[in-house]
Design a protein around this nucleic acid. Structure first.
Length: 343
DNA sequence: AACCCGGGGTT
DNA sequence: AACCCAGGGTT
């Protein structure tokens, strides 16, 4: 019978002790700090999120302060960090926690908005008591390489295999340094391009390295070709202000402020005419393209000067050009507006 | 600028 | 199980 692979965990725990990160501000026993850090670390590196983390905690020192805050101020503090759905989910979860207290196990954590299986596992491990596998991008990379898993990692069956493998590798003790070590190793040594195998504690047991295929892993099956989608947007300005609409929470750029948008330019002109009447003067046209996972978005932007603006409403408002940089806008819209108002 | 990537949510 | 969404990193 094959014995349990303890060499993997042992090597990581030992490496973590000497080379891992030990002084991160959320390495404490405050579940609020740990939860916030894990959300901010989704799709984001430590060096990027660190100043945001500090700023966020100064503004919202505990979960009750966060729960009581207005969504707008949460989004404003999050501004610049990207992936704004994380901020919306964080706020929604804060309200639940303020009412019902912090979850006491991973399964309960995972029912909360923005907390998936891996994040729930990490939070409960670092907050103390949890004993679960994690499987984020770093861990996937380490596992597919050390065990030479060549199946495409964007397939459910492979993900399932990786979870099983991660479960089987869990050590009985030292779960915190093990988990932190796995994350740190993937982030600093077993990186996607140019892995630093000479500095890796697993290099001797790494099957991908033995076979010389570490750079080809993890493997993904190709994605379908992207289509192109055309839309029309209106940039309506009044002195140094621009007319923005709040987007619905579902769909792209959910909950962010953006320009009025229609499928076709004719529809857009109709809308502008109805909304602003003859107070609008057509100016130049602009355009941009933005690529999503599944399609290229091509936007034609009709610019109008407006001399008599309508008043704001909950879902539409005028924004000063000075407020654009810190506002919750989609990245391409922010870029376009900053360019438009640039001196 | 093109290409690659990966977390949670939705269907 | 497959697809959707978002923005940063790398080349």
């Amino acid at each position: 019978m094959n014995t349990k692979n303890t060499a993997f965990a042992t090597a990581i725990i030992c490496w973590q002790k000497r080379y891992g990160r030990h002084n991160l501000p959320w390495q404490c026993d405050n579940p609020y700090h740990i939860w916030l850090s894990e959300i901010m670390l989704q799709q984001t590196q430590v060096t990027t999120m660190l100043p945001y983390y500090q700023r966020f905690l100064r503004r919202f020192p505990d979960v009750h302060r966060l729960a009581r805050a207005h969504t707008e101020s949460v989004m404003a503090v999050w501004s610049g960090l990207g992936y704004y759905a994380r901020a919306r989910h964080l706020h929604a979860t804060a309200k639940i926690i303020a009412c019902k207290g912090f979850p006491q196990n991973a399964a309960s954590w995972q029912t909360l908005p923005g907390v998936g299986k891996s994040t729930a596992a990490a939070i409960t491990i670092f907050a103390g008591g949890g004993h679960h596998a994690i499987l984020d991008g770093n861990v996937k990379r380490v596992l597919t390489r050390v065990f030479a898993i060549e199946q495409p990692t964007n397939k459910a069956a492979t993900i399932h295999t990786l979870w099983k493998l991660a479960d089987s590798l869990l050590p009985t003790h030292n779960i915190k340094p093990y988990t932190q070590g796995l994350m740190d190793l993937g982030a600093t040594v077993c990186v996607r391009v140019s892995p630093r195998c000479e500095a890796c504690p697993l290099s001797k047991q790494c099957l991908a390295r033995q076979r010389g295929i570490e750079r080809r892993l993890p493997h993904r099956s190709p994605r379908p070709i992207k289509s192109v989608r055309h839309i029309a947007m209106a940039l309506i300005y009044h002195h140094n202000k621009v007319w923005l609409q709040k987007r619905p929470h579902a769909g792209i750029w959910g909950g962010l402020w953006s320009l009025p948008e229609k499928e076709a330019t004719a529809d857009l002109r109709d809308y502008c005419c109805k909304k602003f009447g003859d107070t609008l003067t057509p100016r130049e046209e602009m355009a941009f393209t933005h690529t999503f996972t599944h399609y290229h978005l091509h936007a034609k932007v009709l610019c109008y000067a407006c001399y008599k603006p309508p008043t704001s409403s909950p879902t539409a408002k005028w924004m000063q050009k000075g407020a654009l940089a810190d506002a919750a806008l989609p990245a391409p819209i922010k870029k376009l507006l900053l360019a438009f108002f640039a001196p």
